[in-house]
Every structure is written in structure tokens, then in C-alpha cells.
Amino acid sequence: MRKLVILSLLLVLGYFLLNTFAGAEFGKDRKVLANYYLEKSPSELQVANTVTAIVVNFRGFDTLGEVTVLFLAATGMGTILLRRRSKHTGLNPMRTSPEASKIVQAAGKLLFPAIMILGAYVFIHGHLTPGGGFQGGAIIATGFLLLLISYRQFKVEHKYVTWIESLAGLTFVSIGLLGIVLGPHNSFLENFLNVGTLNELTSGGVIALVYIAVGFKVAAELTGILDTLVNIRETGDID
């Protein structure tokens, strides 16, 4: 009975949502603001990937807020799951899952460097190819996840993770502040470097630098979150 009520309510909600969006015909060209971005991104900023130009340059302040949200999520998780170190120290006493097989361990060791390089490639070339700081950071975090699930004794040093995260965040903000000092219009996160030529690694001015900082920050944060989640004690005792 309850499920029926919920289903009918969802039907009504879905019907109205669909009717709202059906007014916007699928596949129709309705770019207005996008035309400005699509015109300015290759000509003024020399950035091939327009999405990156929007995320880092036109809406750079938004991205700073986004990075802050991710940072808050990582710190919030640490605070929520905080628990004093138990007496029985040893190699990860919290994990009760069995050791992964030799095949998984060997493959993890082999794949880890390749995953790191792929992640670094994705965030360094964020202004040229699909991808960027968030995607590259996520790829690097999957490499650490691979090690975390294949080696029981593997542990991420939270001290270094915090350092990388803080330095990367500081780099982002300092690049933004340098834009106020050196930029032609003296505004936050403004490009103050030579923009170079389209489709070269050095094009885009500060966009590449900001995305490298974002890549490091996201990689460190996601690795920290994964490590927190993997290393949870599975018993249900109360603090």
C-alpha cells in the first residue's frame, strides 16, 4: 500500500518533470552564452578544450568552491569517523577481509605505475584533450585503491596526503591572487602568463598550472577518503 502511494506520487512528479523538459526539443541548437565561450576559448585563451576553459577560467571561482567542497567532504569524513587509536597496534588490525591472491597482488604492482602515468597525463593535458584535474585525480586514486585492496599491509601516510592537499590548494589560491597583482584587469584567477598557441602543451597560460594543482589536490583527497573507508574497523563497538 505504501509503495503504491509512493509509486503514484513518483508518477505524477515524473510526468510534470517530463512535461517541463519536453518543451526543450532534444538536439536543437539553443546556445547563447556557449557561443561566446566557444568563440573566446580558442581565440583569446588558446585553449582547445572549451569545457576546461569554462571550468578553470570563465568559472574558475566556482571551481575553487568545488575543490573546497571536496576538501570539506574529506575532512568531514575524517571527523565523523574519528576514533582514538586502539591498544592493539599492528599491521592494520581493523581489516578482517582475507588477503588478496598472488595474481591480484602481482597485477596491482604492475599496473600501479601505468595508472599513475595515465592520471598525470590526463590532468597535464586537461586543456588539450578530454579530461582534466578532477578526472586525472580520480584515476590516480583508483591506482591507490588497487594497492589498498590487494595488499593488506599497505597504508597511505595521512601526513603526506595532507601536505600534498594543502600545498596544491595553496598553489590554486596563490595563482588566483597573482592574477590580481599581475593580470591585465587585476581580477582574481586571471590569466597573467603568455597564452601560447592553440593545441600546444604550453598554451592556455595559467589554466594548465591550475589544473595540475587541482589534479594533485583531488588525487590526495580521494586517496585519503578511500584509505579512511578501507581501514575502518568492522566491529560495532561504541566509542
Binding site: 556557449a34 571550468v55 568545488e66 571536496l70 568531514g76 578532477f134
Partner: peptide, 26 residues
């Protein structure tokens, strides 16, 4: 070219969704 603005917004939305999921799980 397709509209790049929804793609940039969805990039933000995915990251926020990840953060929300992580905090909810904790």
C-alpha cells in the same frame, strides 16, 4: 559543437555528488 556549459556544470555536479556520497557513507 555541442553546448559545453552543461558539461562543465555536470563535472561540478559529479564531484559534489561524490562528496555527498562519501559523507553519507561515513
Amino acid at each position: 559543437m555541442v553546448d559545453p556549459i552543461p558539461q562543465a556544470l555536470v563535472l561540478t555536479a559529479i564531484v559534489i555528488g561524490f562528496g555527498v556520497t562519501a559523507v553519507a557513507l561515513s
